[in-house]
Design a protein around this nucleic acid. Structure first.
Length: 555
DNA sequence: GCCGTTTTCGGCCCGACTGTTTTCAGTCG
């Protein structure tokens, strides 16, 4: 089991302790243990109980619980609290804006034990009756439940990717002589997946007998040429069968999107059958369109006129900007992060952007710490040359749009990523103005995660995209594509507008540990959806080019 | 529950923001 999963279990334990009104100090100790476990620079599964209990914030009792979790998946005290909590009350913990204290009141005072009942109570104006609740809280909770309901059955691409590969892999090993590929949303690399679609040349009866050997999947629906199934996580799958002859055309049609296919059909009502997708596009008078681009957002006109962009690939990335280290809330040290980029990823530069001083909860850097980091960067740059570490900062954009350090400090960074982390509840006008003020700051190099969204979990503040992008153009500010699979923010749907305006984008992993650096792959997927080519991507610049870019920006 | 010690008991304790209060509790990043 990974540290993150163990940390989640302790988080749940501390939430339940709070729900049951246990000693707040013990509760806090568990919450802090969760945090500490998540930030351990080694796997808890690989060390002894003594090594665990010498870690700060992890005592003997917590270490024992960790061991029990590794052996059994849980521990008795937690099981006991779970047994006393109705399923629906447990589920309330996932609703934004609702913490254990409020849930306790909802459960114990109003007798509400499920999210369905809770929504009903909001609509009936009954939540306001409970102490500590008012109209606004009730509205927030109602909105939050509706947001979460709308996301039922949807999964992050990154979460589905590995489990979907298992099913595809089984098909391949069962039927090595047949063709099996992802199609649909998976093949178009959509950031949110509602169904994992697979196209296969197996017959339907072969698929049926194959599935009988796979008890982990439940059949949902049988059709003549397809089966739908689901797994224990609730991920839905659709396996579509086809013939060798129709493979390419069925691949094209099932890949979609629906809009893209409809637009193709306006060129020729019945799409022709050829041996490859390339040949089909060619017969329609189009150059080949990469699956990621097939969203009906102008790509057919590009293909008609030979204007398709050369889409960026992972191999085009020469470096990485916006990453964290143990200076703030990262797991690995500056040197470990840089070395990983140099030796494991073969990159030629690394940008460090730890949190700025306002982000106290994340160990944001005081000016003194910033200066210490600059000294270490200088030493490492001598040691690692020609590899280069760029000194950056992820500066909080404060409520009035200003940045987090005085100008003389901001001026000394190689580059500055400006992001919003606090006071997220804003209307569109306020959010847009706050961002524009930050964009107009002469020290801002990159605008970090423009909307603050967390996919399937938090919508992000509303912004006027055009105004924000136009301001970036006017002030030569790069927009980040935050590649964390929960963010993928800037949304690819706005990339095409940004690129038309001549903007540069940067695929930033926002890594808090070495493993997080390869999240850049998810950024590449959505960047391709948005039509990004390497020459318009800041971290696809060579070391010399980006040095010049930063130097010019600073002038 | 963890930690550190004037060492086995007593103190621990993000801070801003919001909404609900009318001085503070709960939630979040």
């Amino acid at each position: 089991m990974e540290n993150k999963a163990i940390a989640k279990i302790f988080k749940l334990y501390s939430q339940l302790m709070e729900l049951f009104d246990e000693n707040p100090f013990r509760t806090k100790a568990m919450a802090s243990a969760s945090f500490k476990i998540d930030k351990l620079p080694f796997s808890a599964a690989g060390v002894t109980i003594d090594q665990l209990s010498t870690q700060p914030g992890i005592g003997k009792s917590t270490a024992e619980k960790i061991i029990t979790i590794l052996e059994t998946g849980s521990f008795p005290e937690l099981d006991n609290l779970i047994a006393q909590t109705p399923q629906g009350v447990l589920a309330m913990l996932t609703i934004k804006g609702l913490g254990p204290k409020k849930i306790r009141s909802i459960w114990k005072d109003l007798g509400i034990e499920s999210i369905g009942e809770l929504l009903y109570a909001c609509n009936e104006n009954r939540l306001m009756e409970a102490k500590g609740f008012g109209l606004k809280t009730q509205e927030e909770i109602r909105k939050s439940i509706e947001f979460s309901n709308a996301n039922q059955g949807l999964f992050l691409y990154a979460k589905v990717e590995k489990i979907a590969a298992t099913l595809l892999g089984s098909l391949v090993s069962h039927f090595p002589d047949q063709q099996h590929v992802f199609t649909g949303d998976m093949r178009r690399k959509c950031e949110i997946i509602s169904s994992v679609d697979i196209l296969t040349t197996c017959s339907i009866s072969e698929i049926q007998s194959f599935l009988r050997e796979m008890p982990a999947y439940t059949a949902e629906e049988q059709q003549d040429t397809a089966v739908q199934l689901s797994d224990e996580l609730g991920v839905r799958y659709r396996i579509q069968t086809t013939s060798e002859e129709r493979f390419a055309i069925d691949l094209l049609i099932t890949t979609g999107s629906e809009t893209h296919i409809r637009e193709l059909q306006t060129i020729r009502r019945t799409l022709p059958t050829f041996a490859s997708e390339e040949a089909i596009y060619e017969a329609l008078g189009l150059s080949y369109i990469e699956p990621e681009l097939r969203e009906g957002a102008g790509e057919i006109n590009w293909a008609k006129n030979g204007q398709l962009p050369q889409l960026i690939t992972y191999a085009d990335l020469k470096g990485t900007l916006h990453n964290h280290s143990t200076y703030s809330d990262g797991v690995h040290s500056l040197e470990q992060m840089a070395m990983y980029c140099k030796d494991e990823l073969g990159l030629s530069y690394f940008g460090i952007c730890d949190h700025s001083k306002t982000a106290v909860y994340a160990g944001g850097l005081s000016i003194e710490r910033v200066k210490e980091q600059w000294i270490e960067i200088e030493q490492l740059n001598q040691k690692l040359a020609p590899f280069r570490i760029f000194s950056g900062i992820e500066s909080d954009i404060l409520s009035d749009g200003s940045l987090d350090y005085p100008d003389d400090i901001l001026a000394k960074f190689d580059f500055v990523v400006a992001s919003i982390h606090s006071n997220l509840r804003m209307d569109e006008e306020k959010a847009t103005q706050r961002l524009i003020t930050a964009i107009e700051n002469p020290y801002t190099t990159i605008l970090g995660h423009p909307t603050g969204r967390l996919l399937l979990s938090r919508p992000g503040y509303p912004i006027d995209y055009k105004k924000v992008i136009d301001a970036c153009v006017a002030n030569q500010v790069v927009i980040e594509i935050n590649a964390n699979p929960l963010r993928l923010d800037l949304d690819w749907r706005w990339q095409r507008y940004a690129l038309e305006k001549g903007i540069l984008l940067s695929i930033n992993p926002d890594a808090h540990r070495t493993e997080g650096l390869t999240d850049m792959q998810y950024g590449v997927y959505v960047a391709r959806k948005g039509g990004l080519s390497p020459e318009r991507c800041l971290n696809a610049f060579s070391l010399e080019e980006i040095e010049q870019y930063f130097a010019k920006k600073k002038r």
